[in-house]
Amino acid sequence: MQYRVRHITKYAYGAPVSLCYNMAHLLPRDTEHQRCLNQKVRIYPLPVYQNENTDYFGNQTFYFSIQEAHKKLEIDVTCDFDITPIDLDAYRAKSITSCGQLRAFMQSPRTEAEHLAKEYLLDSPQIRRSEDLRNYAKEIFSDEKNVLKATLEFTHKLFSEFTFDPNTTTVATPLEQVLAQRSGVCQDFAHLAIGCLRSVGLPARYMSGYLETLPPPGQEKLIGVDASHAWFAIFLPELGWVEFDPTNDLMPSDQHIVTAWGRDYADVTPLQGVIFEGGGSQQMSVSVDVRRL
């Protein structure tokens, strides 16, 4: 399946910004099941400096600097992807590791992949392990349970017990509050799942990207109504990193497009930077469109 993703971010400032430095995680990355066919970045005003690089996690980053006064900033990124569907039945057939075995492997890694996965057991800027998170998940991830089956069960638990509500959280809402109020958005659900998995001794990482959304039958798809999406992945020695989407209660196959992954949202923020002046106020709008080619 081939997709075109267009992601437009606009800023309007209360007063002219004299100088800004920015870093974006908006460029695609190639994976085992995903290949970027082409990409185009347009920025207004034109940057005086721009450069592409790769971060610690292997994600593509885009740096740019604007050194002229401006009251508006627009970043327009268009990428084409080719997605190969994941054979989820094959994943289930090959999954043999139990939760107890995976915990033991993480204590005494045998392979390079297991050594690298240990990093995703640790606390990160926005995810802290806790007893509350452990208690919420420990029964599902008992030693004898198959990891993949247990994670599917846990994904369904989050989907069933939490309500999607963008008005109840911000990017800084603590996991304990999300757990208590049982509501949030995809980022919260991904963070909560990762925090629970790490709290029971299993490695998990944050996935950032896009999800194709389809209009109701008979209605035309509107432009710009899609959004960035977040989900999580857990490491299995026999399969590598396997992805789960608790917001939609499924394992991603060919409708999830990956832009970046890391320990949590702080590692892969779509756009971050520093501005000088600007009047102390700003308004941001984001438009995302995911279309099949």
Rank of each mutant, 00 (worst) to 15 (best):
L148A: 03
V41M: 10
Q177K: 15
Q126W: 02
L239H: 07
A150M: 03
P166V: 04
T84C: 14
Q181C: 09
L250W: 00
E131A: 15
A93H: 08
D254K: 13
K40D: 13
H115I: 14
I43V: 15
M251G: 02
P237I: 12
C186S: 11
E153S: 14
C36V: 07
I83W: 07
Q282W: 08
Q282S: 15
P246T: 05
D226Q: 06
L116F: 10
L116A: 15
A150I: 00
L122I: 02
V41K: 06
A117F: 13
D249Q: 07
I223K: 12
N51E: 11
T151D: 04
E131T: 14
P203Q: 09
F244M: 04
I66R: 13
H70P: 00
P16T: 00
A190R: 04
Q177L: 11
P45V: 11
S98K: 11
T111Q: 07
I43D: 03
F141G: 06
T78Q: 12
Q219V: 05
G262P: 12
P215I: 04
E212V: 02
I66A: 12
T151R: 05
S183A: 15
V258N: 09
G224W: 00
V290M: 04
L293I: 06
G195Y: 04
G195K: 02
L271H: 01
A24E: 02
E238F: 06
R110F: 13
E74P: 00
D30S: 13
L73M: 13
N38S: 14
L222T: 06
E52I: 07
R205D: 03
A233E: 13
G14I: 00
A230K: 02
G279T: 03
G273F: 07
V41P: 09
R134D: 04
A90E: 11
I43Y: 03
D245T: 03
K10M: 08
A137T: 00
F62G: 01
D188V: 04
E238N: 08
F235T: 01
Y3A: 02
H229Q: 06
C186R: 01
E52C: 11
I127W: 02
L179C: 10
A172T: 00
K72R: 14
Y49N: 09
L26C: 12
N22K: 13
Y56A: 12
T269V: 12
D267Y: 01
L37P: 00
A117N: 09
Q101E: 14
H33I: 03
Q107F: 10
A104Q: 14
S208I: 10
E238Q: 14
G240Y: 06
G273E: 01
N51I: 00
D80A: 14
V225A: 10
Q255V: 07
L148D: 02
V268L: 06
T61R: 05
S281F: 10
V268C: 12
N248T: 03
D245G: 09
N59R: 05
L152V: 01
Y13G: 08
T151L: 15
I86L: 15
I66K: 14
L121G: 10
E52Y: 01
T170E: 06
V268S: 01
I83Q: 14
L175M: 02
V274S: 07
P28C: 09
Q126T: 00
K157C: 09
S287D: 07
